[in-house]
Amino acid sequence: MIGETLSIENLSVATLVGSEPRMLVDGLSLTIRRGRISALVGASGSGKSMTCSAALGVLPPGVNLASGRVTVDGMAREAATLRGRHVATIMQNPRSAFNPVRTMRDHAVETLKALGRFGSDAADRIEVSMVAVGLDDVKHVLGLHAFEMSGGMLQRMMIALALLSEAPFLFADEPTTDLDLVVQLRVLELLDRLVEERNLGVLLVTHDMGVVARLADEVAVLDQGRVVEQAPVMDIFQAPRHHVTRMLVRAHLSLYGMELEA
């Protein structure tokens, strides 16, 4: 059964600083719907990546889950069954996500195998995903190692690998930071199209309010591990309430020589 909504409920993540516990994510709740894009924004270090890692059960050592669960259509799901099955992921920093001695072909095959989807149509599926992200020279790229590729190519390869899973939800952590604007626009259009065509539900982590403006339906603003504002995208830009939201929107508009009204 394929879920319609995915909810992160009361998520808290803690770590020890010296002997003092510190909350990195604090009682966070968030709902993602299929066919919609929810943006998670907030200052650097506010807990965006940690939220994704915690929801998917891939927290780094020294950090632990203090509370929370993830449900799909109201049913609690173990992190291990979420990953790949319900949720595909694109993580921050593509280069470190690839094994330096493996080719892109190895990575694609491994991804399909891990999902139990490696079959006679593997080559076709890989090609479809790669063309979808604009890596048109499929044969050539599959033979490359990470060090032989530019940052932008790697990012697109990572998205292609995520698409292979055909999961209904996608967590994308800064999916376009290393892309040039032209490819970025193409990838954003691609995500937009996937949301339409595959009815994908996306959690989009980004620090670029331009990306939010282009793509998001809803926005949650994170500050020190807490959601401080949650609203439809228009409201965020036109009537931001929390001071953190206002600061983000103001800084963004100033890039265009614009000011926040009122």
Partner: peptide
Amino acid sequence: AVLPPMPAV
């Protein structure tokens, strides 16, 4: 390719 400052209606 510069992104829009505001969401489009």
